[in-house]
Design a protein around this nucleic acid. Structure first.
Lengths: 226, 226, 226, 226
DNA sequence: AATGAATGAGACTTCATTCAT
DNA sequence: TATGAATGAAGTCTCATTCAT
């Protein structure tokens, strides 16, 4: 029931009236709640989020949240599922298997970096969920399914790189993935304290460019045959 | 219950200090509050933390928190200051300037990794503070002072490495530091979701060992002359 | 406990209203809160009033006070508005313009006196608001509107009295009003200390009668032509 | 113990040191507490007053308030006693028996008016005490003694005025006193709401002058033989 | 005499959640 | 489906007061 399924257009009762205010549209109501909840959770965390605030932002009645999501915790879980589905879906659309190994790594890193920049809530949500020791996604079947075959894709790239002589053998795909994500994630998620410590604007165009290049350089270095 | 014994007249300053529970010791009271607060904040975040819970853990009266720290936000700020002071102090005691460049990098990474492992609250606190856009440390003079000259140390190592031919020139000390921290931090802070995704125990001895080595390898790779 | 009976399906709008305890009636809930708050504030002042006590007296959930009135200060403001609206409304219903000047003054003083006696909370509230330097009514648009044209009525009486030779000219309507109110108000509001000082019962029938007569005599004396 | 006894100068231990900070001076400590308490109580009432705030204003340790005055209620009572002693003392120093009847009334009204203006806290305290139904002064022996023979003085003036033909007979001294005080008190104590209602500055020089004259005129009018 | 530390009760307010329509 | 009203628990913070030095 909490699924969004955004495309279906239900012909509602022959459309007796054109419904100027989009009343009674459960699909959209759920979507609005999810979007508002994502914003709220990512801004103040699970503990700091307020159901009332989410309902207001979503423009729906507070009661609807309970109707569709049962409660705060379940809503948080749905938000997490939605967020992770989103990034993994986009990632899979990259079709990295069609690229040369080095290009594939570059593309994946560029994609990850851009995704983080465009969806900073994602990192917040990941942090929050880890603060709570992953107790929400741990219960989610959907979450697990999302990652089956996910590391295989990276492994295939690595294998092709070794075969082509671009990469050294013996690199663990999981380690690589963690590093790949880490160097971008850490920079962006901790940019606020970083700015106080280092005294420069982490989101300035050149700074972003420099960081991305350094990160790609780092990952390619560790992959390079010696 | 807080009083130890009501009627006894202790001859002042005679007993050599055998009172086991040090009553009326503001310094210790504050320390206990800080310790309890650090645990609480790192476990559930600023929004999720409960003053009452902190007071209980600290074994002090709720009121004392307001006496010494004014309020929740200020307490959080104090916790942050204390935590960052702690890691920077320990770090500075490494005396990396006395080590060969490669060894210095290794030592710094090992230290950082071990510190994170021994003080996982530190990463939680950093995450929390960034969730709140660094609004607490931004107000802290003490925090800023903590980091003056902090990056210079790393720069000196880099310079020595370039001079000795161990490192390639042109590497930015701040980028290096961010990467250095990132690869360990990300692995540890996101280990809960990581375990669900990857399906192995991130804190297993061999896993930890493997990760540290991979991280050091990564950083040294990017520093290596080409 | 708040529910009357859970299963019965009342045919909507059929019962002529025999529900004895009107559940879910926001208008009445607000009215009950206001009434209880007026009693509490007038008994112990703004600083001494307890939200919990008000909620109990009103028979509503504490939360409702915040739902409808935002907070203690705003509730106090609403109480003041209601109280002042009440006295001004009753006053305006006297239709003093239809009475002979002397009778109009008498009627106004009798009304004021009786109103104070019947609504002693009013004086308490006025005192409290002045203790707080009128900061609540100052913010109230409704309060200001209440008094437009309010002094004109008295001025018309004065003018008619001067024309008829009953009153001397040159008496300021505002001074008159202040005196008119003062002589009754002071006696009643300070009657507790007054009783300790003077040693008689200020609310005894004869005492009340004597005071009212003295007051009317006083005001008519100062109005009398010389 | 709570008495102030302002004049005695205790020669403290031969004045070993000149005590630059006036430490350990119980008389002054009590006086400072009383002064601060009077200010606080008159500003926010008994319910709104804060012991801590009083101690701070007085520049003494909070504990001292309990040492000298037992508690908040008792402190309030002491403040009331002190305040009423003060006005009655000053009043008695007028020596009205030496003035012509009309002049005596004028002098008394002028005195009362000026006293209210100079000590506006007095009115606040009276209001507060009446809010609490005089429960503090009722317990005070000292308070009662203060007013013995107090109304007799006014009666003597009235009697002399009747004898001289200046005043009509039959006026009750207590009624007169109440009116005398009322017309000034009401104007001043309710000036804040009055200013919002009437829209002029109640404390402006001319306004004060006009009010005093109107008040004296009022009282002399009701006393005048018909 | 004076002080700083400590306390427990209770203040205002907010929250997630359920009820009734 | 949707909504507004209502609730009880709990949260942050404040207060008058006492304890120990």
């Amino acid at each position: 029931m909490p699924t969004t399924s955004q495309d279906e257009k239900i012909p509602r009762k022959k459309a007796v009236r054109d419904a100027p205010k989009r009343l009674r549209d459960p699909v959209q109501t759920q979507a609005k709640i999810l979007a508002a909840a994502k914003a709220e959770f990512s801004k103040v965390g699970l503990g700091g989020a307020r159901i009332e605030s989410i309902a207001e932002k979503a423009g729906v009645n507070k009661r609807m949240i309970y109707e569709y999501f049962k409660g705060k915790e379940e809503l948080f879980q749905s938000v997490l599922e939605e967020a992770w589905t989103s990034i993994r879906t986009a990632e899979s659309e990259l079709e990295l298997d069609h690229l040369a190994p080095v290009d594939a790594i570059r593309a994946l890193m560029k994609f990850t970096w851009d995704y983080y920049l465009k969806h900073p809530e994602f990192m917040s949500l990941v942090n929050s969920e880890n603060l709570h020791r992953a107790r929400h996604v741990r219960k989610s079947q959907r979450f697990r399914e999302l990652h089956t075959g996910f590391i295989d894709m990276l492994q295939r790239i690595l294998d092709r790189g070794v075969a082509s002589g671009d990469f050294r053998p013996g690199v663990d795909a999981r380690q690589l993935h963690l590093t790949l994500a880490a160097v971008g994630y850490y920079y962006l998620t901790n940019r606020h304290t970083g700015e106080v410590i280092f005294g420069f604007d982490f989101l300035a165009k050149e700074a972003l460019q420099a960081r991305l290049e350094f990160n790609i350089d780092t990952v390619l270095s560790v992959l390079r045959p010696r």
